[in-house]
Nucleic acid binder design. Structure first.
Ligand SMILES: [Mn+2]
Ligand SMILES: [Mn+2]
Ligand SMILES: [Zn+2]
Ligand SMILES: [Zn+2]
Lengths: 146, 146
DNA sequence: AACTTATTGAAAATGAATTTCAATTTCCTT
DNA sequence: AAGGAAATTGAAATTCATTTTCAATAAGTT
């Protein structure tokens, strides 16, 4: 997993070079912190993590770097019911959906090919071609429903 | 359908009386305009419709009345990818999901019991009990995909 | 009519996210 | 290594939808 992180950082560097963006100390720190963190993090949460050791890195730069990570394909933006933009590291190109607990806030991921196929089928009945979809379940997780 | 509207307005009145809210000219106008309008409207859009004939009704009151309509069960709040809060009249307690066209912006509604059942099945595998879900498809409608 | 309570609209406030801008840094070219 | 164009940075200002505040007004109860 440490290898995976440096591999991703290498990918980011390639992306930046290709786009004419510059490598900076800030981007490196923010990206490292992001890539090793738990999933579905907000800009503010990441800013706090980064600030712990680097008091000179600005809020704005965290926002900008998270955008950059999205553009490079290393992060995905997600917005759940609280309307905060969250980011999660992308592991290859696997797609997944989410179960969000209304009590503890935990987010569980799942993937179901049957579901994806059914979605395509429904869409095609309307002559609709799906580019993307959002599928979030809100309710109570095993621990919270008691 | 005109009967349906006045029926809903009656329901709203009952709700307001029960909650100790007052009937006002503004609420009546806003609710009427909302209930007869096309679906998935934003506060601003409704404000414009209302303002056309009633230049004295404030923006804030439209926001507040839309909230009231939600609380009374006559409207549902929906947020799609543009992050604007939209409201749609609720017809009984039927549930539906949405196909949103990325080109023309049209929103098509659908309902699929098979999909709902599959969702329950997936959730139960995680010991998760669903309270609500959000399922939006983004892509191109029949007309726009050419 | 008198009175209590809710409602209204304008303006101010909120809060996440974006933009602006002058100072600094990166990195390409000599 | 030095110069210089172009990108980046952080703080502060701005945006934009939505909410809150508050004094004036309207509703509904007695
Ligand atoms: Mn996820
Ligand atoms: Mn709908
Ligand atoms: Zn939980
Ligand atoms: Zn379309």
């Amino acid at each position: 997993m440490i290898k995976e992180i440096s591999e991703k950082k290498a990918r980011l560097k390639t992306f930046m070079k290709q786009k004419g963006f510059k490598s900076t100390r800030q981007r490196d720190i923010i990206a490292s912190e992001f890539l090793k963190c738990e999933e579905h993090i907000t800009a503010e949460e990441l800013y706090k993590k980064v600030s712990r050791r680097n008091k000179d890195i600005g809020y704005t730069t965290v926002y900008r770097t998270l955008k950059l990570l999205s553009e490079s394909g290393l992060a995905t933006e997600r917005i759940f019911a609280d309307q905060l933009t969250r980011y999660e590291p992308v592991s290859d190109d696997e797609h997944h959906d989410h179960l969000i607990c209304l009590k503890c806030g935990s987010i569980t991921e799942f993937e179901d090919p049957k579901l994806e196929r059914l979605q395509e089928k429904i869409a095609s009945e309307f002559g609709f071609s799906i580019v993307d979809h959002k599928m979030d379940f809100y309710g109570y997780c095993r621990d919270c429903k008691k």
